[in-house]
Structure formats: structure tokens, C-alpha cells
Design a protein around this nucleic acid. Structure first.
Lengths: 204, 204, 204, 204
DNA sequence: AATGAATGAGGGTTCATTCAT
DNA sequence: GATGAATGAACCCTCATTCAT
């Protein structure tokens, strides 16, 4: 039936929502299935009717959330390309997209940094794959930006891309934790300047 | 009782060493006291003879490790100041120090990013304090660097400092996880170039 | 509503068939309603539409199965009486009937021995009653056989009957589990010889 | 230390004792670890400190218990041989030993018949092995008994042995469940007569 | 100073049963 | 007549902590 399938989808959505927040706050192991169920407003058994295990719920959640991230990075890059901003406009647009993403889904960002570099975790492959996708979007922006001026050495590109990606992520998390009163524009501008080389005023 | 005090210190050291690695790999909650004891080569009871609790062991460990980090950043800054490198030499030295730190203590770095932005954790204050100290060292480097050229707006300094700190951290973790074959010099150079404004070529 | 009543009967039959096999293999508690429903090719709710509970399904099943057993023993006895085989022909016919029964319904036999001597089980009375009926059929065969020669002491009869019944049951189960290649005739002959006193040769 | 090893052994013994009774009464799956621990007078965690799992506890228990059985059958056979009883004295002694065993450990006997012919259970191999050993003891008794008179066909021996073994087992269980007032001697005599061929008085 | 057996609260998971469709 | 999503009690097992040795 359609209605029952809809009902199920709805239950899953509620469980996802409950799980992200809790796991981001407390970590995967410290979050209990009881808590997730209670927060989602369903019985504990319902979690297991909808997901094979706690780990499975978490993995599906990660996959879903991380696709949102790469999706919005890609959208930002394309949009910038269409607008023909040239230069580093695409890079700038992606910084903004990443910033906005963290603002909208802080829990996912928190999860990402907490889990990405761990070894021996069931969902590590999923994360690595997502990281790869996100970083690739930035890499191409770097290549195109380089084409207009002094190009970066090819070997530097992956490292630089991941550094930029990580920097924005960390800066965004710091922003929300330690200076939540600043505006997104403000933070964006500062990061933008940093990456435009105004760092030490050496504009020469 | 010098010998016995030594013996105790030695046991504690073994427990510290066992705990960092395991917790970095698996997270705090997923690491059991049994595992720590086994890895350290002592009986389970011994852990409780030496530490009040699992949390306590972890907090002492964090405090110890984080002092190493701020210590080495400060040392790098001072050394650079003495050598009078000027301009961005101090900043460069700190990048290098942070990179080396992650290379030497990857587990601690991993722990740091996993726990820093979490709320409601016993050791969160410890981490925030450490972050504050580290960022301050970078802030003064930024101020001094700025004094030689176009200064950064004062309001940008904390944000930029934390962004730089975070960027290096993330880049270093990525380096160890995904491109371990690169040399520290190589990674250092790439980050340095990025921060020197070569990102999108001559901005003229 | 003949057609719908037929449909219902059919569903119940499918559920019975699925349940016997599974419960014989895994035991009552280890068999889940989900498994039974899946094996029967119906939805889980259907089980509860047709039976009050899992226990109820099992009891109806047992009752049904055990009536088959006593029925076939009785039929064998009667038939032998009609053919007037005399002596131990009736006993022999019953051995054969029991053997055939186990061959045709191994799951039921398995269930019987697994549950008969347990205490505190809901269906224990059912089983005891069946045992009583089966043993009685054999008892009368023994009495009649005895009438032709040296009679067994009356007090020995119930014990002997239950021993014979049990022996055949166990031998049949062993046959199916450990020597399935032997023919029913073969096994029958061996048991028959054993009960005819050829065990240790001529006792004379 | 010796004392702590003794303590552990003692705990294990208590757990074994608690588990046999409960599992024989209720079956493996229906018996909870809580019940076992409570009956043994220890905490639930203690069960898991001493055994890897509930299944493991059960398997060790089975192995232990079944070795007692084969041991006592073998002892009975040897003793009879020494006493030079000849004829079917050895077989008789083993019947008696089996009877006594069931009287002393009814729970084990109950477990045996309940589990032996099940498929797909973790401990099935253990049981089959034990069965094999027990039956072999009887087989050699049959061969020797046969040597003094009309020998059984070689192909009949395994089947006959398992039939005798099973018959005594079932008879003993019936005895304890349905006619507990009879003496062991009495039951033994009836079974003995049955196997000596007095069944239908055909002593000819 | 160290050990390891024992504990019991609490977590993940299963499953018979209910109920709205 | 049948379905399948949802439930929650109860189960197996884990693990930080205690304590007698």
C-alpha cells in the first residue's frame, strides 16, 4: 500500500532527525537506542523494525547527510560557473556553501570530523568516499582558478583542496561554538580574505 | 620509596600509552578498561589502583597531551622570534610545529577534533582551554606579521587564527590518513604557499 | 461462505506444515512466528488471524499429529487381528506402523520425545494422554500374545509396553538420523528379531 | 593463585548444577540466564565471567554430563567382564548402569533425548559423538554375548545396540515420570526379561 | 603495588502480540 | 480474510567498578 509505505518513510525520517542531534552531541556509543526512540516519539522496537541495527541506522544517516553536503557544494560550483564569476568566484561560492551547510546541519559536520580519521569503524569507508567527492569538487575549482593566473603545482592540488575544505569546516564549527554572534557574511569575508592572500599584507 | 614510586610511574605511563591509541582509534566509550589493561600488560584491577576512574584516566591523559601541543607551539614561536625571521617566519614555524605534533601524536590530534565541539562532556572545558591557548599563540604571530604590512582587521584576528590552526590540523590528519607517503617538508610547503597568498596566482 | 471457509482451511494447513518442520528442527521457543509466517508464505498478522497465539497453534498441531499416531497404531492392530496372524503378528504389525509413522512424520516424533518428559509445559497433558493411548494399544497386544505362551506378569505389562513403544521410536529416529540408507524392512526385521528373543542366541 | 582457581571451579560447578535442572525442565531457549544465576546464587555477570555465552555454558555442561554416562557404561562392562559373568551378564550390567544413571541424573537424560535428533543446533556434534561412544560400548557387549550363542548378523549390531540403549533410556524416563514408586530392581528385571527373549514365552 | 573474581546496572536486540487499514 | 507497521516486555550480553587476597 502507498499509505503504509508513506508511514514508514515518515517514521524513518523522525528517527534520522532524532539520531543526528543526539549522536553529534554525545557520540555514537554514548547515545542509546532508547534515547533515539524517545526523541523520535516512537517505541524502541520501532527502531529495529526500520533499521537492522543501531550501526545501520547511523550509516544510512551518514550517507544521507553527506550527500546533502556534496550536493550543495556541487550546486554552488555550478551556479558560480553559470554566473561566470571567473577568477576565484567559484571557490568563494563553495566556501559560502560549506559555511551555510554547517550552519544548517551542525550535527552532521560535528559527526564528520569526529569520525573521519578513526580507523576500524564500520562506517569509515562511507565517510572516506564522501570526503573524496567533496574534495574533488574543490579540486576542480582550484584547477580552474589556477588557469587564470599562477597555477598551483598539480601535486599540491589535492592537499590544498582538502586543507581548504577542512579549514572552512573547522572555522565554521568554531564560529558556532565560540562566536555564534557573528554573521555568516562576516565569517565568510574573513575566510575569503585569508585565502586571497591578504594574510600578511604582502600584496606587493 | 623511590623504587616503588618509579614502578608506579612506569605503570601509569604504560596505561597512558595504551589508552591514547585505543581511544583515538575507537573513541572513549567504545574503549573498554579491559582492553586498556590488556594492552598495557597489567591486570584490570591495576587500572583502578592507579586512576580513580576511566574518565579520570582519560582526563589526565588529555591534559598531559594538550600541554605538549601548546608547549610546542609556544616553543616554535619563541625560537622563530629569536632567530628574527620577521614577516611570516613565526607563522611558518608554528605551522611546522603543529604538523610535527600531529605526526608524533596522531592519536591526540584525532581525539582533539573528535571531542572539541561536543557539548556535555566531562572534559570539554579542558579542551576549550587548550584551544584558547593554542589560538592565542597564533593570534600574536598574526598581529606581529600584520605589523609589517597590511594589518588584518583586529576583529578578524581570532577567527583567522582559529581557521589557520584548524586548517593545519585537518590537513595533517588527512596527510597521515590519505597520503602518508608525502614528506612533512612537502606538506609544510604546500600549506605555507596557501597561506602566503599564492592560492589564485598573483592578485597583483 | 464455502469458498472462504476453504480458503481459511488452506491457510491453516500451510501454517501447520510450516510450523511442524521448524519447531521440530529448532524447538518451540527458538522458532519465531515470523519464520512460520514466511515459510507458510503469508503475512505475520495472518497467523494471529487464524490462531489465538503461538502456543495455541502449537497445541492444535500436536493434537492433530498425535491423533495420527494413535490412529495408525490402532489400525495396524485391528488389521492384524483380522488377518488372524496370532502369536506376535499383532505386535509386529504395530512395530511396523510406528516405524512407518516416524518415517512419514519425523518432525512429530522428534517433538514427542523432546517434550514428553518435560514438566510445566502447557501441552504436557496432551502428550501424556497420547502416550497413554499408544501404550494401551501395545499392552493389549502383549496380553494377547502372552495368552498363547508364557504370559508376562501383569505388573510387567505397562512397563514392557512403554519400553517397546519407546524403543521403536528411538530406533526409528536413529535410523533416520544416522543410517538413512537402510530400508524400513531391514530395520523392522532387526527390531523384530530383538523382541523375539534372538538377542543372545538360543537361551534354551 | 590456587585459592582463586578453586573459587572459580566452585562457581562453575554451581552454575552447571543450576543449568542442568532448569534446562531439562524448560528447554534451553526458555531458560533465562537470570534464572540460572539466581538458582546458582551468583550475579548474572558471573555467568559471563565464567562462560563465553549461554550456549557455551550449555555445551560444556553437555560434554561433562555425557562423559559421566559413557564412563559409567564402560565401568559396568569392565566390572562384569572381571566377574566373568559370561553370557549376557555384561549387557545386563549395562542396562543397570544406564538405569541408575538416569535415576541419578534425570535432567541429563531428558536433555539428551530432547536434543539428540534436532538438526542445526550448535551442540549437535557434541551429542552425536557421545551417542557414538555409548552405543559402541553396547555393541561390543552384543558381539561378545553373541559369541557364546547364536550370533547377531554383524549388520544388525549397531542398530540393535542403539535400540537397546534408547529403549532403556525411554523406559527409565517413563519410570520416573509415570511410575516413580517402582524400584530400580523391578524395572531392571522387566527390561532384562524383555531382552532375554521371554517376550512371548517362545522359549521353545 | 597489584591482582582477578565477582557484581549489577544498563545497553542492543528479539519477538509475541496488537491494531489500523 | 489478510496485512504489516508498531509496540514494549524481556532477553542476552557488556563493562565500569568493587573487593578480598
Amino acid at each position: 500500500m502507498d499509505s503504509s509505505s508513506t508511514r514508514r518513510q515518515n517514521t524513518r525520517r523522525k528517527l534520522f532527525a532524532a539520531a543526528v542531534t543526539l549522536i553529534a552531541e554525545q557520540g555514537f556509543s554514548s547515545t542509546t537506542v532508547d534515547e533515539i526512540a524517545e526523541r523520535a516519539g516512537v517505541a524502541k522496537g520501532t527502531v529495529y523494525y526500520n533499521f537492522a541495527s543501531k550501526t545501520d541506522l547511523f550509516e544510512e544517516l551518514l550517507r544521507h547527510g553527506m550527500e546533502l553536503l556534496t550536493g550543495s557544494l556541487r550546486a554552488a560550483a555550478e551556479e558560480a560557473a553559470e554566473r561566470g564569476g571567473g577568477r576565484s568566484a567559484a571557490l568563494d561560492a563553495m566556501i559560502r556553501a560549506e559555511l551555510d551547510f554547517v550552519a544548517r546541519h551542525p550535527s552532521l559536520a560535528q559527526l564528520y570530523v569526529a569520525e573521519l580519521w578513526r580507523t576500524n569503524r564500520a562506517w569509515q569507508p562511507t565517510l572516506t568516499r564522501v570526503r573524496q567527492q567533496a574534495v574533488e569538487v574543490i579540486e576542480s575549482a582550484l584547477r580552474e582558478a589556477g588557469a587564470e593566473g599562477d597555477p598551483l603545482a598539480e601535486s599540491d592540488i589535492p592537499l590544498t583542496a582538502s586543507a581548504v575544505f577542512g579549514m572552512v569546516l573547522v572555522a565554521a564549527l568554531d564560529w558556532r561554538s565560540f562566536q555564534p554572534e557573528r554573521s555568516a557574511d562576516d565569517v565568510h569575508a574573513a575566510l575569503s580574505r585569508l585565502l586571497q592572500g591578504r594574510l600578511n599584507g604582502a600584496v606587493r
